[in-house]
Amino acid sequence: MAMSAQAIEARALRKTYDSTRGVFRREKVTRVALRGVDLAIERGELFGLLGPNGAGKTTMVKIFTTLLLPTSGAATVLGLDVVKDEWALRRRIGFVFGGERGLYWRLSGLDNLRYFADLYRVPPEVSRRRIPELLERLGLAGRERDRVELYSRGMKQRLHLARGLLNDPEVLFLDEPTIGLDPVGARELRVIVRELADAGKTIFLTTHYMFEADAICDRIAVIKAGEIVAEGTPRSIKTLVEDQGVVEFEVVGLPRERLDELRGLPGVSSVAVAEHELAQLVTVHCARPSEVMTQLSAALDGLKLEKLSSREPTLEDAYVQLIGDAET
């Protein structure tokens, strides 16, 4: 097989979990976590995998990081097969799972990093230099000798990230890294992640916050129940719902022919009217709300419009449309 030029590649990747249910009459339950996923991520990309809980994000990260074997299909990272080349691969990647687990709370942050540097076979002369650099970069310098149990949630997560960077990985996997962080902590982390990507690292990030993916990712795939349902730049995904902009206003005594005129405006996909006490509440779904707004006064000349408002389509609208009611 020719070496893949991609940083990460998945072909028809499938994963099912078998478990047993019941105590007396044991029943085998098979749950499909990934249903034939195809993905290709280039070197240097900050790629976001966006999806609700249970969509299969963690499963995918575990497969790419050699922690889990796929049921069928193939995956390579840096051209290395995640099933067969696991030892070579583990030296060249890093991973961080969200949440507080995965650190020795009774040890200092510094001792945690020293220990994990050993596990990752980082030569001592390299780790002596790299650990202080990472502490500095992640804003932990000065607190490195405190025990981890004294760290804030955000500090723990930054320590996790430092740990994931100890072997200077070419590809970094971050599974919901901002989960449980307060907005400020989450934002700090996103800034750091973006900086790492700008410095050339390939980053595979999972999240269930669309604004997070929108804010920092170069490219996004949306996963739903183990299937990729959309893929592209945040902007291109927004265009999937570009007819979902909204203009709303109240008006008194709107004649029917004026409504048809509204429907004829460019970019308008639908117009709905609801009786609202004496007035009518009009909702216009359209591609470019600002354009519709400027043409509104001409189309409805002479009528008094109240409570006029508009909203551009957001990635959230796109996400909600793609995911449907999966997130319940």
Binding site: T65, T66, R90, R101, L119, Y120
Partner: peptide, 22 residues
Amino acid sequence: ANERHFGTLPILLGSPANRLVT
């Protein structure tokens, strides 16, 4: 049990560390 309690096992298993030594 400590390892389980702190959730550090996946990190160990995902690392290139020599298993027998650890």
